[in-house]
């Protein structure tokens, strides 16, 4: 078998593995970000403190360190995560913490009048957050979140450090057999570019779909 016949199926298998992490980790990161961002604005003092500590911690750790901590560190405590579980969890913790700052900023940018009007109708703080503030804040946070989502697609290549067989991991192994780094990494680059481009288009379409008529400047 030649180089291409062998490499293409292998790298596609890696790509499927990469996607398999991302389809879980991206939505979960966004959900965590919304929860953390909301908690840091709307939570009572202890909840705020916990959420802030969480964000500061996982934003402060390099992703590689988080991956090692979850994989080898937890194993020391008798908790064994598979490479897949490790990668997914690490991306959620790290991505969610980063993204939460966009959500927090967006919530804080909503005019106080929206909150007053909600409370005046008799909404609880939680109802106000869910029905009035978040639908507007998430729209505002979306461009920033998109940025982080694209980062996450690219940084998913770091999962190789815990032995997860994603695009980059299979490529590295392959190069040790056929020394053709240019071809191999060009294929990798093309695959990542395809994923990030697809995500960028999808997210822009979502932004367009969620626009509020009359309120926002045109994005098209």
């Amino acid at each position: 078998m030649g180089f291409w016949e062998e490499f293409i199926p292998l790298v596609l298998h890696g790509a499927v593995n990469t996607l398999w992490v991302l389809v879980i980790s991206i939505p979960a990161s966004v959900a965590l970000a919304i929860a953390l961002g909301s908690a840091r604005v709307y939570g009572n003092a202890p909840i705020k403190a916990i959420a802030t500590a969480f964000v500061v911690t996982f934003r402060g750790f390099p992703l590689v360190v988080t991956l090692f901590l979850l994989f080898f560190g937890l194993a020391d405590l008798g908790i064994y995560l598979t490479p897949y579980q490790t990668a997914t969890l690490a991306f959620v913790l790290c991505g969610g913490s980063y993204m939460s700052e966009y959500v927090r900023g967006a919530i804080r940018s909503i005019d106080i009048g929206q909150s007053l009007a909600a409370r005046a109708l008799g909404m609880t703080k939680f109802q106000e957050l869910i029905y009035i503030i978040l639908p507007q804040a998430i729209r505002r946070a979306l461009p920033g979140l998109s940025n982080e989502i694209i980062y996450q697609i690219k940084y998913s290549s770091l999962a190789f450090v815990v032995g997860y067989e994603e695009i980059f991991a299979v490529s590295k192994t392959f190069i040790s057999r056929y020394f053709m780094p240019l071809q191999v990494f060009m294929v990798d680059a093309a695959l990542y570019l395809a994923m990030t481009t697809a995500a960028a288009y999808g997210l822009r379409a979502l932004e367009y779909k969620l626009r509020i008529p009359g309120l926002e400047m045109s994005i098209r």
Binding site: Q114, A117, M123
Partner: peptide, 20 residues
């Protein structure tokens, strides 16, 4: 108070309609 606020309409100078 949330229950009681339902019975008190409030109209603001700046309207404060929900934008979305």
């Amino acid at each position: 108070i949330n229950k009681m606020r339902q019975k008190i309409g409030f109209v603001f100078q700046e309207f404060n309609l929900f934008h979305h």
